[in-house]
Design a binder for these strands. Sequence first.
DNA 1: ATGAAAGCGCTAACAC
DNA 2: GTGTTAGCGCTTTCAT
Lengths: 346, 346
Amino acid sequence: MTTPAAPRAGRRPTISDVARAAGVSTAVVSYALNDRRGVSGATRERVLRVADELGWRPNPAARSMRAGAQAVGLAIVAGEALHGAPVLDVVASLQRALAPRGLSVDLRVVDDDVAAAELYTRWGAERRCEAVVVPNVRVDDRRLAAVAAAGLRAVVVGPPHITPELSAVEVDDADAYARVGRYLLDLGHTRVAAVTGPADWVRTAECEAGLRRALAAGGAELEAAATDGTAEGAAAAARRLLMAAAPPTALVLETDLMALAALDVARRTGLVLPWDLSVVAGADSVLCRLATPALSSLPALGAELGTALATAVLGALAAGPEDAPVRVPLQVAALAVRGSTAPHAR
Amino acid sequence: MTTPAAPRAGRRPTISDVARAAGVSTAVVSYALNDRRGVSGATRERVLRVADELGWRPNPAARSMRAGAQAVGLAIVAGEALHGAPVLDVVASLQRALAPRGLSVDLRVVDDDVAAAELYTRWGAERRCEAVVVPNVRVDDRRLAAVAAAGLRAVVVGPPHITPELSAVEVDDADAYARVGRYLLDLGHTRVAAVTGPADWVRTAECEAGLRRALAAGGAELEAAATDGTAEGAAAAARRLLMAAAPPTALVLETDLMALAALDVARRTGLVLPWDLSVVAGADSVLCRLATPALSSLPALGAELGTALATAVLGALAAGPEDAPVRVPLQVAALAVRGSTAPHAR
DNA sequence: ATGAAAGCGCTAACAC
DNA sequence: GTGTTAGCGCTTTCAT
């Protein structure tokens, strides 16, 4: 036996179907379903029950039509990490934190920052998302210009004072790298080199500055080599540094893969870790633990960055256009000391 | 000076705005914009020009309202690869191939296959996507049941004869692993072990079967150890295998990380590669090239899998409900031979 | 507390 | 070839 109020077969039930089945108007159903006041307890109860029985689910397209796209956009350049963290780790925790608010994450993999900027422009025009996340900020980043032009709310990821006019997750990489610097100083290293990612990334400069300041305070010097962030680039830089007249006794590399590449170079150069050379990775992973010797590493961000981003996004969406931007600080935890670092034998 | 037909400030132009500005009706604009016949060349031209001048962009929500969600869903379990390939590589090429058709990819990271099944059910009810991609199929996969119940079109990724009633990308892993088997036979190995991912994955069984058949044809035996697919799990399995009374002289591992873990175990066991032990990785990556010795590896799928998926998805969407499912074959390319494999010294 | 109805931006059936 | 119009499913005034 079929309830006369049931929707046509082969169609998902709509609010009208629920309203008909519950014997009320669509407005009441909408109110009840969205937990709004203006509905009696009994009616609300009944509506919810009927909606559940019918298997009603909101149609996101229809909802977006009025409420705006319930999504936040994230364009990631192919091959890049998300501020040093594995992209999917961050996305997972961001999705988890935004889901209860009915927000989804629109992740796109683009070729470069030019494509990302175009995408932001398009997203703005299409009203495809409420806000965008901008990671791996460059100096004079064209994406930030695009975001501003598109009138999108943005959450950037960067060091504490980045783009003060925008909401941001402020990651204290300078502090983390300063701690690495002090650790190496304590071990007696006086010639340290850093192999970083692209020179025009704000984060790169920040990490290098933190490390340099800490070393300088102890009378040690830092030689920095910017690369494209690939294993090959890091290997080339490491080779050049280690072949120099007065080679460094400690090497800091921004990622796990870069550190692994440096390990390989050191091995081929005949250097025995950690006695001839100490190596520190800026972002931990299984790789760092599997390497021989295991690599001393700064923890990589992951879930923490995702939740921090969610906080910033939700804050930015809640805030009016006149309100101050939301700034969410995020600390990098302690260096994991492993077998790749040792006191410098003078 | 403002055109009288310009939309109110602070609002994105709609089709009505374009129609007004071009002096035609919304239907004509819609037809022109969607490249449909029934509009004169001159009118079409003018409409397109005006739309461009106004900066009109389609509103995806409004479009989805009639046409259905222009998206394909992909739920990936946290930590899993996509049929051995890096998730974002596949997603990038899938997005690139679907974008011209106006389709986007809705990627979600879920905790496990139970959550994935729930998500598929929800997607079906919400009409959130046109089709879903189901990778890493398990034996009696609950996700396939959910997909069927939700009435979603699905594209699965698996071996050639998987779920014949659904569209699929058929990856010939058995053949690839058979080639590895023959290669090891040619090197004189007679005791080979395979360390695989979870035993209830269809692909796992397929890889193992391919390897086993090829080895058996040459009179060699295969010992297979299923693991959880992590580096730790692989290390434990490798340790157990290598400590046995008659240890294998060649080890095949499903992923780059697992192979790296095995390398580490071998090193600690005092085995010198490739003389005491040959190691093959089932999925290549920078890691395999950086390892010492570099690992002989089967290429990992990436962009090819993405384009194959796009072909299958588009085919499935184009096909009527009565049409035969779309099956897209995909071959794994040749083994890259590197320093981790050598003839077995009898 | 509840109902009627307008409308979000777009498409498509139908009329001219 | 072009215009009119009725929805798609939902939220939200505005009446009652």
